[in-house]
Deep mutational scan, measured.
Amino acid sequence: DYYEVLGLQRYASPEDIKKAYHKVALKWHPDKNPENKEEAERKFKEVAEAYEVLSNDEKRDIYD
């Protein structure tokens, strides 16, 4: 669930989505996790995908 990936509720505002994305993206950035790079890359891609969908009103409506 994209909301879960970003740690958000379904009623999150666009500002909340952006803030959550930056927080979680920093947490899972591969450069910040050199000891667990493969998992970090996978999680970072999930976070980016979730943000791409939830930050676009049209894609978010379809997802919801």
Rank of each mutant, 00 (worst) to 15 (best):
D31A: 09
I17F: 00
Y21K: 02
N56C: 13
S55V: 11
E39T: 10
V47W: 00
L6N: 04
V24T: 09
K32V: 09
Q9M: 07
A48L: 01
V53A: 06
K23F: 09
A48S: 15
H22I: 09
D31L: 06
E41W: 07
R42D: 06
N36T: 08
V47I: 07
E52L: 07
N33L: 04
S55D: 01
K43A: 09
R10Y: 04
K23W: 05
S13L: 05
Y2S: 09
I62L: 14
K43R: 12
E39Y: 15
A48E: 15
D64I: 02
S13N: 06
P30C: 04
K59N: 05
V53T: 15
K37M: 08
Y63H: 12
H29R: 09
R42I: 15
E41Y: 08
D57E: 11
E52A: 12
E58Q: 15
A20D: 00
G7D: 03
E39K: 10
D61C: 09
H22N: 14
R10V: 05
K23R: 14
K32E: 11
A48W: 06
K37A: 10
E38R: 12
V53H: 10
Y63L: 04
K32C: 08
A40E: 03
P30R: 05
H22E: 15
V24P: 02
K45G: 08
V53I: 10
K32F: 07
Y63W: 07
D64P: 04
R60L: 02
I17K: 01
E41K: 12
K23S: 14
V5I: 12
L6A: 02
Y63E: 06
A40T: 07
Y63G: 09
E39L: 12
S55R: 09
R42T: 08
I17S: 01
K32S: 10
E41Q: 15
K45L: 11
N33S: 10
S55F: 02
E35H: 09
K32H: 08
S13K: 11
E49K: 15
Y63C: 04
A40R: 07
D16M: 07
K37P: 08
E41N: 04
L8V: 15
N33V: 06
V53P: 02
K27R: 11
R60I: 02
K37T: 10
E58A: 14
K45I: 04
S55Q: 08
E52F: 07
N33A: 07
R10M: 05
Y63N: 06
V24C: 10
E52P: 00
K27F: 07
A48Q: 05
G7P: 00
L26V: 08
E39H: 14
E35Y: 04
Y51K: 06
S13C: 05
R10F: 04
V24H: 13
V5F: 02
E39V: 10
G7I: 00
D31W: 02
Y11P: 15
K19G: 08
P30Y: 04
K37N: 06
S13M: 06
K23Q: 15
E58I: 10
Y11T: 15
R42E: 05
E35I: 08
Y51R: 02
W28T: 08
K43C: 06
D31I: 06
P14V: 12
Y11F: 11
L54E: 02
L8P: 00
K37I: 11
Y63Q: 06
P30W: 02
A40Y: 08
E49A: 10
H22C: 12
V24F: 11
D16R: 03
L26F: 05
S13F: 02
V24G: 14
E35A: 13
K37Q: 04
E39Q: 08
Y21H: 08
Y3N: 04
L8C: 14
E58T: 15
I17D: 01
H29M: 11
L54M: 02
K23T: 15
V47A: 15
Y63T: 06
P14I: 13
Q9T: 12
K43N: 07
P14F: 04
E39C: 05
N56T: 09
D1F: 04
Y11Q: 14
K19C: 11
E46D: 08
L54H: 05
H29N: 11
V5R: 09
W28D: 07
K59I: 04
K32I: 05
N56H: 11
E52W: 10
N56V: 07
F44D: 01
E41H: 10
A20K: 04
I62T: 12
E46T: 05
K27W: 02
W28C: 13
V47Y: 04
V47K: 00
E41R: 13
R60E: 04
A48I: 02
Y21V: 01
Y51H: 05
D1I: 01
V47D: 03
F44N: 10
V24L: 14
L54N: 00
I17W: 01
D1P: 04
Y2C: 01
Y51L: 02
N33D: 08
D31T: 08
D57L: 14
E15S: 08
K19R: 12
V53W: 08
E15F: 02
K19E: 15
E39I: 13
H29Q: 12
Y51C: 02
W28P: 04
L54W: 00
A40S: 10
L8D: 08
V53C: 14
V47P: 00
K27G: 09
P34T: 14
R60S: 04
L8R: 01
E52I: 07
E4G: 12
V53Y: 06
S55M: 14
K45P: 02
P34S: 15
R60K: 14
R10H: 11
W28G: 09
Y2V: 00
N36A: 10
A40N: 07
N56Q: 06
Y11V: 09
A48F: 09
D16H: 05
R42N: 07
A48D: 05
E49S: 08
E38F: 08
S55I: 15
R10S: 13
A20F: 00
S13W: 00
H22W: 10
Y21A: 05
V24K: 10
G7L: 00
K59M: 10
I17R: 02
D64Q: 09
N36I: 08
R42P: 02
E39D: 08
N36S: 12
E38S: 13
V5S: 09
E41P: 02
E35L: 04
L54G: 01
E4A: 14
H22D: 13
A12D: 03
A40L: 03
E58L: 10
V5M: 14
A50S: 03
S55Y: 04
A40K: 01
R42C: 06
A48N: 14
K23H: 10
Q9L: 02
G7K: 06
A50Y: 00
D57P: 14
D16C: 04
I62P: 11
